[in-house]
Design a protein around this nucleic acid. Structure first.
Length: 361
DNA sequence: TAATCAGCGAGACGGGATAG
DNA sequence: CTATCCCGTCTCGCTGATTA
C-alpha cells in the first residue's frame, strides 16, 4: 500500500491555526508591562496575531529606540513543555527577524538553557533575556506572582492525554466507545479517560457525549495540529535511545517487522511520497525488543548532548495499545508529527504534504 | 539533599439498566 | 422486586519531577 505523490504537487502551507487565547494575551500583556517597568527601553505590542511574510505569528513587538521588531511566540506553562520543541518552534518563525519567547514564568534552570542557546525570552514575572546587536537586557531572579496565576492547562495534552487523543484521531469510532475500550486502545489507565475527554470538550475540540448525544470532533484539523504541536512531550518520554548504524539502507529489510518494528518519520515519508532520502531512521518498537534489535542490526549507542538530533537512528517505544498493523510504517499522523519534530526544514515540506494528502479530510 | 507536588495506574465503588 | 452486569467516577499510593 504505497501511494506515490507527484513531485510537482503544489505545497499548501498549513495556515497556522494558532489563535492566541485569552490566557496567552494576558501573559503577553503582563510580560510587556513588566518589561517596561524594569528595563530602560520601551517595548510595545504592535499587533496580536500579526502577519509576517505570509505567516501569522503570536504577536509583533517593537523596541522604541530604533524601532527594531521582534516576533513573539507566547507560551503558557512553558516550564512543563519540552524545551527543544519550543526552541524549534521559535526557529520556525519567519527568517530574518529577531524572535522572543514570551512565557508565564521561566524558572532558573530553564533560563540557563535558553541563554546558552541564545534564545531571547521574557516572562510575566519580569525576567528578561534579550540579546540583540546594540541591545542587551538581562533581568533574573523574579518570582512569579502568586495571585497572577494563569489558568492551569487541563489533562488533554499531557503524555497520557496525547496517547488518548492519538487513539481518538486514528480510530474515530472510539469517540463513542466505552471508557474501558478507549483506555485499552490508548494504552492508558481507565481513570484518566474522563478528565481527558472533559478537557477536550472544554477546549472545544470535542462536542456532545452527554447521554444519548454522539460525541464528535468539532474541528478535527485543529486537533491534529494541536496534537502534533504537543507530541514532542510524549516523544521525549518514550525515547529508547539514539544510535549509529554504519551500513547504509540497513532498514530496507523485510525482517524488521519480526521485531514488531514500525518505520516512522523520514523512512515512512520516503516510502509514501518518494520525495526524500532518509537521513535519520525513526523506528518504533516494543521496549522489550530493544536489546535484541540493537544487537541484530549492530547499532551503536550515541553518547552526549544532542542525542535527539545528531545520530542516524532514533528508537521509540510504541505507545499505543493496538498491536495489529496493516503496514510496516507508522500511522500518517505519527509520521507527520515525527517529521516536524525532527527540526529539519526540508522535512517540513514533506510533512505538510503528508498532512494534506492523508490527514485533513 | 529533602520536601513537595503533579500525574497517573490500579482497582474499588456505586448508580443505572436489564433480565429473570 | 432483586440479582447481575456494565460503566463512569473516586480514592489511594507510587513515581518521577520540581522547588526550596
Amino acid at each position: 500500500m504505497t501511494a506515490v505523490v507527484q513531485l510537482n504537487t503544489l505545497f499548501i502551507i498549513n495556515e497556522h491555526v494558532k489563535l492566541l487565547n485569552m490566557i496567552e494575551k494576558k501573559i503577553l500583556d503582563a510580560a510587556i508591562q513588566q518589561f517596561n517597568l524594569q528595563a530602560k527601553i520601551e517595548l510595545t505590542n504592535l499587533e496580536y496575531e500579526g502577519e509576517v511574510d505570509g505567516e501569522v505569528v503570536d504577536a509583533i513587538l517593537e523596541l522604541k529606540p530604533g524601532g527594531r521588531r521582534l516576533l513573539a511566540e507566547v507560551k503558557n506553562w512553558v516550564a512543563h513543555k519540552d524545551i527543544g520543541a519550543v526552541i524549534h518552534q521559535l526557529q520556525g518563525l519567519p527568517q530574518g527577524y529577531d524572535r522572543i519567547l514570551v512565557a508565564d514564568y521561566v524558572n532558573p534552570p530553564m533560563a540557563e538553557r535558553l541563554k546558552k542557546q541564545n534564545v531571547n525570552y521574557m516572562d510575566a514575572a519580569g525576567n528578561v533575556f534579550l540579546n540583540l546587536p546594540g541591545t542587551y537586557v538581562q533581568i533574573e531572579g523574579r518570582k512569579p506572582d502568586r495571585d497572577q496565576n494563569f489558568e492551569k492547562p487541563g489533562k488533554a495534552f499531557t503524555a497520557t492525554g496525547l496517547k488518548v487523543v492519538y487513539a481518538l484521531l486514528t480510530k474515530p469510532e472510539l469517540l463513542n466507545a466505552t471508557y474501558r475500550e478507549v483506555a485499552e486502545q490508548a494504552n492508558v489507565a481507565l481513570g484518566a479517560i474522563g478528565e481527558i475527554l472533559k478537557d477536550l470538550t472544554t477546549q472545544d475540540f470535542l462536542a456532545g457525549g452527554r447521554r444519548s448525544t454522539k460525541r464528535e470532533f468539532v474541528d478535527k484539523r485543529a486537533l491534529i495540529d494541536k496534537w502534533v504541536e504537543e507530541y514532542p512531550k510524549l516523544r521525549q518520554k518514550i525515547h529508547l535511545g539514539a544510535f549509529y548504524a554504519n551500513k547504509p539502507n540497513w532498514w530496507d529489510n523485510p525482517d524488521l517487522t519480526q521485531y514488531g518494528a514500525l518505520l516512522g518519520g523520514e523512512l515512512a515519508a520516503a516510502k509514501t511520497t518518494n520525495q526524500l532520502k532518509p537521513k535519520i531512521a525513526t523506528i518504533y518498537l516494543d521496549e522489550a525488543q530493544r536489546d535484541t534489535f540493537l544487537k541484530d542490526h549492530r547499532l551503536q549507542k550515541a553518547e552526549g548532548e544532542n542525542t535527539l538530533t545528531a545520530p542516524n537512528v532514533q528508537l521509540f517505544a510504541k505507545f499505543w495499545g493496538d498491536q495489529d498493523h496493516e503496514t510496516e510504517l507508522t500511522n500518517h499522523l505519527l509520521t507527520y508529527a515525527d517529521l516536524l519534530a525532527s527540526g529539519d526544514v526540508r522535512n517540513r515540506e514533506v510533512a505538510n504534504e503528508v498532512a494534506n494528502t492523508y490527514l485533513y479530510d
